[in-house]
Amino acid sequence: MQIYLPIAEVSVNIFLILGMGGGVGFLSGLFGVGGGFLMTPLLIFIGIPPAVAVATEANQIVASSISGVLAHWKRGNVDIRMGVMLLIGGVIGSTLGVWLFTFLKTLGQIDLVIKLSYVVFLGVIGSLMFIESLNALRRSKRAIPPKRRQHNFLHALPFKMRFRRSKLYVSAILPVAIGVVVGVLSAIMGVGGGFVMVPAMIYLLGMPTAVVVGTSLFQIIFVTANVTVLQAVNNFAVDVVLAVLLLFGAVIGAQFGARAGAKLNGEQLRILLAVMVIGVCVKIALDLTLTPDELYTIGAGGGE
């Protein structure tokens, strides 16, 4: 059954979109990630204009993060104070990011920047995650305790704040800076940024893993909401019909994913996720480097 999307201005198969939402929702429930890094490239692949894909995916992530954060909230796994610091950075970063997005669109380089960001971030995160979980698997076999966190220059920064839930006393500059980076990514890549923020919170800030996911989801809600509004106002690129279809599928998929995830080993899951992240990265890298069939492209704009 075809449906014509009012903003994307293309006709898509309803069941394809629901299936994609369900599939990515399943994976996000399984791995505890937002899934934006998979969904946005998929949307572009099926012919949704990149600008619409990025903006609409931000809208969908608002929904999945809210549903996720409520579950973590109940277990007391959200550090509001830390979340607000990340959020301050996130709002600055996402506003900057949407502005950059609009600017790059007029230059005709937005597609390139979206793809390059994907290759760089997915490549780095995927490889790190892969190595880390391999090591963890080995460690668990030999039962060697992990190294203790060391003090470095990050702990010498001013404006120190106490974060009780995270059991941390660190400079507020750190979470704000992480927030800015994630905000820019969120606007340009149409992702929540959890896949960057979660490792940064664990390895840079040294937050306990239990509060990391809830706190990052808390921040993601507001940053993606900010991106949604800014994209709607600056680029008219949010397709509500597409977003509703996606989140309907994703909500159902995530439930099954979470149940399946409970039955699997955590380290094996992370290796699987790492392989998937690297896979998406390689696919996009090939798109950028293989000679395209058509060298001439029609630019956006043209008084639409």
Partner: peptide, 15 residues
């Protein structure tokens, strides 16, 4: 844009 967020919020809450 605000309505899009509201829809997403309600959907997330219901889920």
């Amino acid at each position: 844009g605000l309505l899009a967020i509201l829809i997403a919020g309600v959907a997330g809450w219901i889920a």
